[in-house]
Deep mutational scan, measured.
Amino acid sequence: NQASVVANQLIPINTALTLVAMRSEVVTPVGIPAEDIPRLVSMQVNRAVPLGTTLMPDMVKGYA
């Protein structure tokens, strides 16, 4: 099972992602792969992401 990126805190809309804001977890459905965490740092989310939410490619500006 592949680990996905999960919000480690509430991430407000247009907030730049940080290492502290993300964690890796095996979840269903699978979201952005955990190995992409370094690439996600400083990218912005295009919606509010609640704690525990799996990050999907369409939630991160410039990711997809």
Rank of each mutant, 00 (worst) to 15 (best):
I37G: 00
N14V: 04
A34H: 06
D58W: 15
L55M: 08
A64Q: 14
E25N: 07
I13Y: 10
P33E: 02
N46C: 07
N8S: 13
P33V: 07
A21L: 14
V27Y: 03
P29W: 05
S4V: 00
L55P: 02
A7Q: 00
I11N: 00
L51D: 12
M43T: 03
M43I: 04
P12F: 06
A21Y: 14
T15D: 07
Q44P: 07
V5M: 01
A7M: 06
V41W: 00
M43R: 11
Q2Y: 14
T15Y: 12
G62A: 08
S24T: 10
N1G: 14
E35I: 14
A16Q: 14
A64V: 15
V60Q: 02
M43P: 01
L10Q: 11
D36E: 15
P38I: 09
V45N: 01
I37A: 05
G31H: 00
V27L: 03
A16L: 12
A34E: 08
G62N: 12
A3S: 10
D36S: 09
Y63H: 03
Q9H: 13
V60D: 03
P29D: 04
L51G: 12
Q2P: 12
K61A: 10
Y63A: 02
D58T: 10
A7S: 08
S24N: 05
P33I: 06
P38S: 10
M56P: 01
G52N: 11
I37W: 01
I13V: 13
P12H: 09
A3L: 12
M59E: 02
N14T: 04
Y63M: 04
L40A: 01
R39C: 08
L55G: 02
A48Q: 13
P57I: 05
P50Y: 09
M56N: 04
P57K: 07
V41G: 02
L10A: 13
I37H: 00
R47P: 05
P33W: 07
T15R: 07
S4E: 01
V45D: 04
N14L: 08
P38Q: 11
I11L: 09
V30R: 13
Q9D: 09
V27E: 01
V6A: 00
V27S: 04
M56C: 06
Q9R: 13
N14P: 00
P57M: 06
A3P: 13
L40F: 00
V49N: 04
R23L: 05
K61N: 11
T18W: 05
S4F: 03
M56H: 07
N14D: 13
N46L: 12
A3W: 11
P12V: 06
P38L: 12
T15A: 13
T53Q: 10
Q2N: 13
M22P: 02
R39D: 07
M59W: 11
K61I: 15
V30W: 14
S42W: 08
L55H: 01
V27G: 01
T28D: 12
G62L: 07
I11R: 00
T28W: 13
A21W: 06
T54C: 05
P29V: 05
V41H: 03
A7W: 03
A16C: 09
V20G: 15
L40N: 02
S24K: 11
R47F: 06
V5N: 00
P12R: 09
V30L: 15
T53M: 12
E25L: 11
Y63K: 00
T53N: 08
N46F: 04
S4T: 03
D36N: 11
A34V: 07
Q2L: 14
I32H: 02
V30F: 12
P38E: 11
T53I: 08
I13N: 13
R47Y: 07
G62W: 07
K61G: 06
G31E: 01
V60E: 03
L51F: 12
A7D: 00
V30N: 11
R47G: 05
I11T: 02
R47I: 13
V60W: 00
Q9F: 14
V60K: 01
L40P: 02
L55Y: 00
V5K: 02
T54K: 01
I11F: 01
A48E: 15
Q2H: 12
R39I: 15
V45S: 03
L17E: 03
T53Y: 11
I11S: 00
R47A: 08
S4A: 03
V26M: 11
A7N: 03
A34M: 06
N1C: 10
R47N: 05
A21F: 13
P50A: 13
P50V: 08
L55D: 01
Y63N: 04
I32C: 05
V27R: 14
V5L: 02
T18R: 09
P29Y: 03
V6E: 02
P12L: 09
M59D: 10
L40G: 01
A21V: 13
V27I: 06
S24W: 08
V27C: 06
K61Y: 14
A3G: 09
T18D: 06
P33L: 08
T53R: 10
I13M: 12
M43G: 01
T28M: 13
P50I: 07
L10W: 12
V27F: 02
G62F: 08
S4L: 00
Q2W: 13
G31P: 01
V49M: 03
A64L: 15
N1T: 12
T18K: 09
L17M: 04
M43S: 05
L19N: 06
P33C: 08
L55Q: 01
K61T: 14
Q9P: 02
R47C: 09
R23G: 10
D58S: 14
T54E: 03
T53L: 09
D36A: 13
G31S: 00
G62R: 06
V45Q: 00
N8H: 06
A3E: 09
R47S: 06
I11M: 04
N46H: 06
A16W: 11
I37K: 04
V27P: 00
V6D: 04
N8R: 10
P57A: 10
V49P: 05
K61H: 13
V30T: 13
I11G: 04
D36F: 14
A34I: 06
G52P: 02
S42E: 09
P29F: 05
I13C: 09
T54N: 02
S4G: 04
A48Y: 10
V5P: 00
Q44H: 14
A21M: 15
M22W: 00
V30A: 14
M59A: 06
Q44A: 10
S42R: 10
A64T: 15
L19R: 13
K61L: 10
A21I: 08
V41F: 03
P29G: 02
L17W: 00
V20T: 14
M22E: 03
L10R: 11
M56V: 07
D58A: 13
L51Q: 14
T15E: 11
P50C: 07
V6F: 03
V41M: 06
R39F: 12
P57E: 06
Q2A: 12
L10P: 14
A64I: 15
P50W: 06
M22Q: 00
N8P: 02
I11Q: 02
S24R: 12
I32D: 00
P12D: 10
E25Y: 07
D36K: 11
A64M: 15
S42Q: 09
V45G: 02
A3M: 11
P33M: 06
V5D: 00
P38F: 14
I13H: 09
V49E: 05
N46E: 08
I32L: 05
M43C: 06
S42L: 08
V27M: 05
L55N: 03
M59Q: 04
P57F: 06
Q44F: 15
V41P: 01
R23W: 05
N1V: 15
E25A: 14
G31Y: 05
P29L: 05
L10K: 10
I32R: 01
R23V: 06
G62V: 03
G52I: 03
P57T: 05
D36W: 11
M59K: 01
A16V: 12
A48T: 14
G31T: 02
Q2I: 12
Y63P: 03
T18Q: 08
A3V: 07
A48D: 15
L17D: 02
Q9M: 14
A16H: 13
L19S: 06
A21G: 08
A16G: 10
S24L: 06
R23A: 06
S24G: 12
E35T: 14
Q44E: 11
L17Q: 01
N1H: 13
G31I: 01
P12M: 08
E25G: 10
V45F: 00
I13Q: 12
N14W: 15
I11E: 01
A7P: 03
P57W: 11
V6P: 02
M59Y: 11
T18A: 07
Q2C: 07
L40W: 02
I37C: 04
M22Y: 04
P57V: 06
I37E: 01
D36Q: 12
T18H: 05
L17I: 10
L19P: 07
T54V: 10
L19F: 11
G31F: 03
A7H: 02
L17S: 03
L10M: 15
L40H: 00
T28N: 13
T53C: 09
K61W: 12
V30Q: 12
V45I: 04
Q2G: 13
G31A: 04
R23Q: 04
P12G: 07
R47T: 11
Q44D: 05
A7T: 10
Y63C: 05
V5R: 00
R39Y: 12
L10F: 15
